[in-house]
């Protein structure tokens, strides 16, 4: 097979080929590329790599992971949309990218994608440093009310669900200062080092700091409490209606992918979700979620997009009114 003559033969046979030979192949017939829309080491990367590792034996082909980072994940998603919709290219589609569309970034929309499976889902939480004077969420909110805009909350950026939550708290009479950090590592270090007063993040990404006690959870932004943190108050208990911004991570393909291929992929992904290795992984990152059909998962993404859009329009009008 190392014979260069073989290469020449293939080259010559090109002329004889009529039309792409790819069209009638069965799925999957060659490696399925997993586009991770963020750099190595982050939550989306870990999810993509676990999926690739655990789904390879199920689909029976290699699943190389490709990190395409940039523009809140939109660079990788653009690449997915320009790949042939034959299921041999899949990508991670996460809440942050969806909210970035609502904020006007990129040119993608939920209808461009077909979500294959919901892999991880987790509410966001508010954390403080271990030496923080705030012991409960109520103390934190009271301090925010008394010193408007003085408390600093480390977030991932403006126009994200982090920002929406901070703006929502301000609209309810608890104004804090949003301090955006583009790099997650710097964001965590700033709260762990005591340079910011609180951190908005999903628990899985800061699990090691929660376990070591360097970060203390104060509040879950959800309607009910988190089963792993039964002592931490849910936002609804404080009459804050901001439980509709979950941090989900899905696997998606372009919208015009044939249904049977979507179904094959969805079956494989749902088998991954049932594997003990995955159960261990999602428990350690507090992101276990119920199994969903592609249609259900698609609906979560569409609803999330509409929710974020609604919030941003509301804040935009409020700002314009001032």
């Amino acid at each position: 097979m190392h014979n260069p003559l073989r290469l020449v033969a293939v080259g010559l046979s090109l002329a004889a080929l009529v039309g792409p030979a790819v069209a009638q192949e069965k799925f999957p017939s060659r490696p399925v590329e997993v586009i991770v829309t963020f750099g190595p080491g982050g939550g989306a990367d870990l999810m993509g790599r676990q999926v690739s590792r655990l789904a390879e034996p199920i689909l029976g082909v290699a699943m190389p992971v490709t990190n395409i980072s940039g523009a809140s994940g939109n660079a990788g998603l653009t690449r997915l949309l320009t790949s042939p919709p034959d299921g041999h290219t899949v990508a991670t589609l996460i809440a942050l990218s969806v909210s970035s569309w609502a904020a006007g970034l990129g040119s993608a929309k939920p209808d461009d994608f077909q979500v294959v499976a919901m892999m991880q889902n987790s509410p966001s939480m508010l954390f403080v440093n271990k030496n923080s004077p705030f012991k409960t969420a109520q103390e934190f909110l009271d301090a925010a009310k008394q010193n408007p805009g003085k408390l600093r909350v480390a977030t991932s950026g403006l126009g994200t669900q982090d920002d929406i939550t901070v703006r929502y708290l301000a609209s309810q009479g608890f104004p804090t200062k949003n301090v955006p950090f583009a790099k997650p590592a710097e964001r965590y270090a700033s709260t762990v080092g005591g340079h910011t007063d609180a951190l908005y993040e999903e628990p899985g990404d800061v699990a090691q700091f929660i376990k070591s006690g360097d970060l203390r959870p104060l509040l879950v932004f959800n309607d009910e409490r988190h089963e792993s943190f039964p002592d931490v108050m849910a936002s609804k208990e404080l009459d804050l209606a901001i439980g509709d911004l979950p941090n989900f991570r899905t696997i998606a393909v372009p919208a015009n992918t044939p249904d049977e291929i979507v179904q094959t992929l969805a079956d494989a992904m749902n088998q991954v979700l049932d594997k003990p290795e995955w159960k261990e992984f999602c428990a350690a990152t507090y992101t276990c979620t119920e199994t969903m059909s592609p249609e259900q998962a698609q609906k979560v993404v569409v609803d999330f997009h509409n929710t974020v859009k609604g919030y941003l329009e509301r804040f935009g009008q409020e700002q314009a009114a001032k």
């Binding site: 097979m1 073989r6 290469l7 293939v10 080259g11 046979s13 090109l14 080929l17 039309g19 792409p20 030979a21 790819v22 060659r30 490696p31 590329e33 290699a62 190389p64 490709t66």
Partner: peptide, 25 residues
């Protein structure tokens, strides 16, 4: 396992056949 371009049209098919002949796929 870099996702280098496979080309368009005939060449995409040709590249895939070449890779299969070379046992890369």
């Amino acid at each position: 396992q870099m996702p280098l371009d496979r080309g368009r049209g005939v060449f995409a098919g040709g590249t895939i056949e070449l890779y299969q002949a070379l046992r890369i796929y």
